[in-house]
């Protein structure tokens, strides 16, 4: 079988470029900053290739729909669990708390 990574897209047909500029949101900046800190010395929790591998392994439907930094934060969650820094259960419970705190009821 000819495996082709979902991210490996050189030469595939695509439409015109969108050249509009985008100022990163605070959420995007924080995701970027956390990713850099977790990857860099002294922590070195994972290499950028692990990051790539995790992004490529997202469900294809999720991968296609997700925004750029959405993929990053999903990969960060997976790697934090994989490296036993956080557990899935504590992330789920924190997520519930954050939502109930922030979402208008």
């Amino acid at each position: 079988m000819k495996n082709r990574l979902i991210s490996d897209i050189g030469g595939l047909p695509e439409g015109p470029l969108d050249l509009s500029e985008h100022e990163p949101t605070m959420t995007e900046r924080r995701i970027d900053a956390m990713m850099m800190l977790l990857r860099a010395k002294p922590r070195s929790f994972w290499a950028s290739d692990e990051n790539r591998r995790t992004i490529e392994s997202l469900e294809p439907e999720t991968y296609k729909k997700a925004e750029y930094y959405e993929k990053w934060v999903l990969a960060m969650k997976e790697l934090l669990i994989e490296k036993a820094i956080l557990t899935e259960a504590e992330i789920e419970s924190k997520l519930k708390e954050v939502r109930s705190r922030m979402e208008p009821s």
């Binding site: 000819k2 591998r53 490529e56």
Partner: peptide, 12 residues
């Protein structure tokens, strides 16, 4: 070759 796993050699 077309092995599975993470690869940095473009398909094309």
């Amino acid at each position: 070759a077309y092995p599975p796993g993470h690869i940095r050699t473009p398909f094309f």
